[in-house]
Write a protein that binds this DNA or RNA. Structure first.
Ligand SMILES: [Zn+2]
Ligand SMILES: [Zn+2]
Ligand SMILES: [Zn+2]
Ligand SMILES: [Zn+2]
Lengths: 158, 158
DNA sequence: ACTTGCATTGTTATATGATAACATCACTTA
DNA sequence: TAAGTGATGTTATCATATAACAATGCAAGT
């Protein structure tokens, strides 16, 4: 799990690696990491928080890289579709993936005080829910798992 | 788990019980299950599907029980706050609780074909995620767990 | 009955999140 | 060059949710 995000870490490396991996995966799969898409990913990578589409759009606007909602939604759709970003349903917001390229079932730890979001990885068919789904004949294709609470730093501060 | 919702069952009993339990809990806790709130709960209980706030509002309108968004959002807030309904984050929609009154951590199985939603119950601090959160010092207060896939009926039909 | 306080409801307006539709541009390939 | 495809620009609109304030209803205490 990437709970390092709750503590000090080499964040410049986070960002650089995120972009580098995305670029490598795109090159390998024949996808086009266009300037807009790359910039949106950079924006998401700039912090370990989820950002709303319109917050991203505001930044793009300031840089002359797009003025209308579809611009940012298209970029976000691309990033989410290919696993470079995730949508946090609870927040209607988006965050860069910390394990891009590799297929995985993400889960998120969301601090209600500082809004930091850590990405964990789970077995989508595992646990109690997987057992019950199996017993009921329900086929799980995708999971949304988001835990809300307090990160260690904010808990200690309280 | 209430996966009976994927098959034939005595649904009239579902509805009657939902209302009866809500009324009993409200009486016991000094809450007011007003006509509007009761009616919204009845609407949610009418099917094992999540309904958008505006879909509920459309029904209320047809019955002269409210014309503006705040009417339905207030009723939904009340029902969610006191555990008579849940919000499905993935769908921006609401569903009646199948275990009202008792505190619980719900999880949902959402069929992408027929839109039926079953409510399961999980241990919020259990499983891989709970372990990882504990290891990271993250305190889980609430969980959003939504599995998307195919219910047995729709899978057999495919 | 009166009044005081508080929860609920009515209503207007607006904020926030997301997509449809269509024109234009750019890059690839025949 | 021409056609085909994917990406971008742009307008308009839809969908979801809340702020703010007025009016009403209800209960407790006098
Ligand atoms: Zn980092
Ligand atoms: Zn925090
Ligand atoms: Zn039923
Ligand atoms: Zn189904």
């Amino acid at each position: 799990m990437d709970t390092k995000v709750f503590a000090h870490h080499d964040h410049a490396a986070c960002q650089a690696e995120g972009i580098a991996v995305a670029a490598a995966v795109c090159a390998q799969k024949g996808l086009r990491l266009t300037p807009q898409r790359r910039r949106v990913l950079e924006i998401l990578l700039s912090r370990h928080r989820a950002m709303g589409a319109y917050a991203v759009l505001a930044i793009l606007r300031g840089e002359g890289m797009g003025n209308q909602p579809p611009v940012v939604y298209r970029a976000l759709d691309f990033l989410v579709k290919h696993g470079f970003a995730h949508k946090i349903e609870r927040l209607n917001a988006f965050i860069a993936c910390t394990r891009p390229g590799a297929p995985h079932a993400p889960a998120f730890l969301i601090c209600r005080t500082c809004d930091t979001v850590a990405e964990a990885h789970i077995d989508p068919g595992g646990g109690t829910l997987g057992d019950e789904a199996g017993a009921a004949g329900f086929t799980i294709e995708r999971t949304v798992v988001e835990a809300l609470g307090l990160c260690p730093k904010c808990r200690d501060a309280a």
